[in-house]
């Protein structure tokens, strides 16, 4: 079962889940399942044309992948997918203890 690591800013929309497990076997299928189960993720991830927003990067393990090739990118059960904003910083989970708060 492949796993999507949920980035901190999106955890509010995934009931604070840090990981999302999927049986889908393509990257696009996995993302679609994540967005179906957590609908508020969709607007954050995709632009008006349904493409992954230009400032969001997708990684398989440590390797960055082109979102345009997500339909053909095959996943296996050990695949770990990360969704990362291109620029770090500027957000924090409201549910985290205040003493960890930064932005």
């Amino acid at each position: 079962m492949a796993t999507i690591i949920i980035p901190t800013p999106l955890r509010k929309y995934t009931a604070q889940k840090r990981r999302f497990e999927t049986r889908e076997n393509t990257l696009s299928g996995a993302l679609e399942q994540l967005m179906e189960e957590h609908p508020q993720v969709r607007q954050n991830l995709l632009d008006d044309e349904g493409k992954v927003r230009s400032y969001i990067k997708l990684y398989i393990g440590d390797e960055e992948v082109n979102p345009d090739e997500s339909r053909t990118f095959q996943l296996d059960e050990n695949t770990e997918i990360s969704i990362v904003p291109a620029i770090a910083g500027g957000y924090q989970s409201a549910e985290q203890p205040a003493e960890y708060s930064t932005g």
Binding site: K12, P85, Y91, S93, G103
Partner: peptide, 22 residues
């Protein structure tokens, strides 16, 4: 503020999903 929680504006905070700094 950024319009979305997941954004590309370095250093900015999305108020709905962030604690305000003290």
């Amino acid at each position: 503020q950024p319009d979305l929680a997941m954004h590309g504006l370095e250093g900015w905070k999305h108020l709905e999903t962030a604690h305000s700094p003290s």
